[in-house]
Design a binder for these strands. Structure first.
Lengths: 245, 245
DNA sequence: AGCCACAAGTGTAAAAGATACACTTAAAAA
DNA sequence: TTTTTAAGTGTATCTTTTACACTTGTGGCT
């Protein structure tokens, strides 16, 4: 096939996936102990190599599904890392992808089956090579994208409560948000459907479940509507029954 | 060197540069007629291949400088294009970069020397392969980034007038802006330095020249300041001496 | 049965920011 | 001297964002 472009260098093209999940009110990352040399046994992202007859998007899906059994996952290309010496095993370039996973929906044990582990993002161990940089960049991208597109829902179960959603946004942007303002804003989009069920795990009163209306969102997008969540300057919420006279 | 990772496919890694310039009040793109097969003679972006001992950023700079003589240019990685059949010449993946150039500063003839041409973005000819898609994505990225970072200045000469700057922003976002609001907003940042000189090409009165204060910007950024230009819903400006009773 | 503890849920007023808008000024050309 | 052209300037209205505190529902405890 390579009739043209003779004489140019060929390269190993790796892929690494930054896999985000949200569980127990925390943003988490899926990491695993590397099973081969070099750096065998150290913590790393999920990775693999680009094959002959697949696009990068296809390869990213393949790798994620081989290593976790998951499919039909939100994935996005992030950035290529290409320092000449980034991987001591060989000269490789690595295309980083990030993925958003609904942890609840999938068997939480699945990860362990494959030797992977969900680690809170605040307690990440050191990762091999430039993987920590990749995580850093992925977090920035996630923050940016979250405020422009309704991708937060990819991290929650199909049915979720508003307190859950708020907590998710707070974990992503690293700031507390005002409950009333948050609700007002998110409900104003008209994209959430209130269900008749309540979730009662996290409180006695229970919180109503909602669904995100993908169809409505898509038709809005076609009409030029822009999802925008102003998740900027949150503040510590005070004055909640902390004083009693 | 490749002691590890044996048996994995190697790939040709191309780079393509979307080179933006701003001239005669228009956003322009640098394109050239391809000098080799396949698709010889057709319009394409500037491209090349990743070498053995260079990072992608280095390669992108090298390619731009080989093909235009320019160096010290703002460049940013955009996205990798990797469809299996994207290039009929061979299976390649291509990392797209976009660059912002101050056309005035550099010899405008330079382009021609190298067989390249500045084409207004609204009159782009069809480009080979997936290059038109790349341009599309680059424009989106430029629009997004322009509103979050002061990169517009990379497209203007070091000294510029406010009408020039406004016209640049209008070309990028594709909408007319209100003169007074634009000036207020951009001057409020405190990042423009008014000079004592006037530029008198485009009007009899002449417009004052300004410089962008990079140092100040950098120190602001360290303090957490965020550049934000709200360049959203512009409108057609009416009422300017168009009626005379 | 009643009380307590806990998180869910709800509205409004003040402040900040964005928008719309029209005339004056400077200087070259006629 | 007049005309023409684009540069330059301020304010009032509207919209959006922010700050803020009490009531409700329910399970568990006594």
């Amino acid at each position: 096939m390579t009739r043209y472009y003779n004489g140019y260098e060929q390269h190993l093209v790796a892929l690494d996936c930054i896999v985000f999940g949200f569980d127990e009110g925390e943003l988490k990352l899926l990491v695993l102990k590397r099973k081969f040399e070099p750096a065998k046994g150290e913590w790393s992202l999920m990775g693999g190599f680009l094959g002959k007859s697949e696009s990068l998007d296809e390869a990213a899906c393949r790798i994620l599904s081989q290593l976790t059994g998951l499919s039909n996952i939100y994935m996005k290309q992030l950035l290529v890392f290409s320092d000449v010496a980034r991987d001591p095993g060989a000269r490789t370039i690595s295309v980083a992808y990030y993925a958003l996973i609904k942890i609840d929906e999938n068997d939480r044990l699945l990860a362990e089956t494959y030797g992977a582990e969900w680690v809170p993002i605040k307690q990440l161990p050191p990762l091999i090579f430039d993987h920590s940089q990749m995580v850093e960049k992925a977090l920035e991208a996630l923050r940016r994208r979250t405020s422009r597109e309704p991708i937060g829902f990819e991290l929650l179960p199909v049915k979720f409560t508003l307190p859950q959603l708020q907590s998710l946004y707070e974990s992503i942007c690293g700031e507390l948000l005002d409950k009333r303002n948050f609700r007002k804003q998110i409900l104003e989009t008209g994209l959430l459907v209130k269900l008749d069920e309540k979730e009662k795990e996290s409180s006695k009163k229970g919180a109503f479940l909602y669904k995100f209306d993908h169809n409505k969102y898509n038709s809005y997008v076609e009409k030029g509507f822009l999802f925008q969540l102003k998740v900027k300057s949150g503040h510590i919420i005070k004055g909640n029954n902390s004083l009693q006279v």
